Amino acid sequence: MSLPAEELFEEALKLPERERRAFALRLLESVGEESLEDVERAWVDEARRRLDDIRAGRSQPVPWEEARGRIFARG
């Protein structure tokens, strides 16, 4: 992300959850729709990048229970 986008993101995180949800939805609506093929291709590309990172030692997988705990600790 560019510096202005990163700064905007940090400011948006300070909003109450309800306002963040509304803001996120408005942002999503502003970018238009992608075709199902584009979305599927993007997910496949991301999965390949992540697998390459794990195989190259740039990333370490996390067991599901640990990941789940981190996810629900945020809420």
Rank of each mutant, 00 (worst) to 15 (best):
D53M: 09
V31Y: 06
F9V: 04
A5Q: 09
E65V: 09
A56V: 05
A22D: 07
L27C: 13
F72A: 09
W64T: 15
L3P: 15
F23E: 01
I54P: 10
V62Y: 01
L36K: 15
L36N: 14
P16K: 04
A47N: 04
F23H: 06
A24P: 10
E34P: 15
F72Q: 12
E66W: 06
L51T: 02
G69D: 01
V31R: 07
L27Q: 02
A67K: 00
W43E: 11
V44C: 09
A24I: 05
D52F: 06
R21W: 04
E7P: 08
D38W: 11
R70H: 04
E7F: 08
E34H: 14
E29Q: 01
L25H: 12
K14P: 00
G32H: 03
L13C: 07
D52Y: 12
D45P: 14
D45V: 15
R21K: 09
E34G: 13
R49Q: 08
A67F: 00
E17M: 14
A12D: 00
E46W: 07
W64D: 15
R26E: 07
G57L: 01
S30F: 12
E66F: 02
P4N: 04
R20L: 10
V39I: 15
E65R: 03
L3C: 08
S59P: 04
I54L: 07
R49K: 10
A24W: 02
Q60D: 12
R50S: 05
L36F: 09
R21S: 05
W64H: 14
P63R: 08
F72C: 09
R18S: 13
L25E: 15
E40W: 05
I71C: 02
S30M: 08
R41F: 10
E65P: 04
A73F: 01
R49D: 06
A5Y: 03
R50G: 08
W43H: 13
W43F: 15
E29S: 03
W43G: 12
E66G: 09
R50W: 05
E46Q: 09
A47Q: 05
E6A: 11
W64V: 15
A5I: 08
P63E: 04
R18E: 12
W43K: 12
E33L: 04
